[in-house]
Amino acid sequence: MDTILPPLPAMPPGALPRVLLAGGTGLVGRHLLQSLVADPGVGPITLLSRRPLGLEELLPEATVATLPEGRVRVAVVDYEHLDKQADVLHADWVFCALGTTIAQAGSQEAFRRVDHDYPLQLARRTKVLRAHHFLLVSAVGAKADSNLFYNRVKGELEDALRTLQFDSLTLARPSLLLGDRAKQRLGESLAARLGWLMPARAKPVQASQVAAGLLAAAHEGQPGVRILDNQALRRMPLAPTLSEQ
């Protein structure tokens, strides 16, 4: 069992939060990375990746060229063995946008590993290292007793994160994500056209709005557990598509 250390003292005035981002290659994660880099109220950013990665793959060339030394670093990690990689996990804010689909993962077991086990291990390790705020991209309908496997996994993760008792825990629950994907999904194309017919809680939401909601919640630092539902996320400002930046 992990030993939970006392929480770090509040950051002194003027100190910038250290940030950890998992899932930075995904749709929400890429918007988060760009927003974090552009935010003068954010300190050094560590991007966790399961493979070697150049920042040019995620950020505009002009942005990469002007990044101050140490502003962003990429750390290649094995989520199966995070206990051996504590040196890259120190942070004040931890953003987790890890996720896949059952089709991509190949099985329910593999999906659960990526969408439940990896985020939970990340949360446990960063809690041990005294992170203040954990922010998760979950999903609308997340509920541990749901009849739907996808929603049940998301709900079980949320419940497990609550037991860790971070100073602040933010759970974003978006509906279907829209944005500039390399490979467009049929369901997303249909939802983008027919979303106006759906109830507010289920309307598609832009990935940039989810990223904006998470970053705003990080700055606000509300103690305890905070839910960002789909309606709240859809009220966030839109950002340019990644291809336009």
Rank of each mutant, 00 (worst) to 15 (best):
D39R: 06
A38K: 15
G24L: 01
S49V: 11
G195Q: 00
G141D: 03
P174D: 02
D229Y: 01
Y79S: 08
L157Q: 01
L98T: 05
A142Q: 09
L186D: 00
L98K: 05
Y150I: 06
V76S: 10
H90S: 09
A218F: 06
L58N: 08
L215C: 12
D92W: 15
L157K: 03
V225Y: 04
F134Q: 06
E80M: 04
Q222I: 13
P44Q: 07
A65P: 12
R201N: 11
L169S: 06
P240Q: 07
A218S: 10
D92R: 14
A207D: 01
F149K: 04
T66V: 14
R201H: 13
P6S: 09
H116I: 08
K183R: 15
A182F: 11
V42E: 01
G70S: 09
D180P: 07
R71E: 06
G187R: 05
L55S: 05
A211R: 13
A160L: 10
T3Q: 04
V210P: 00
Q165M: 10
E56M: 15
G106W: 12
D167H: 11
G43N: 10
F134N: 04
P52N: 05
A10W: 10
A123F: 09
A110I: 12
L228V: 02
T66Q: 14
Q206M: 07
P12R: 06
P174W: 08
P9E: 07
S168E: 12
E69W: 11
R201G: 08
A38I: 15
S243Y: 15
I45P: 03
L120G: 00
G224D: 12
D167F: 06
L82G: 10
S189E: 14
A105V: 11
T46Q: 08
A97V: 03
L157S: 02
A218E: 00
Q108C: 10
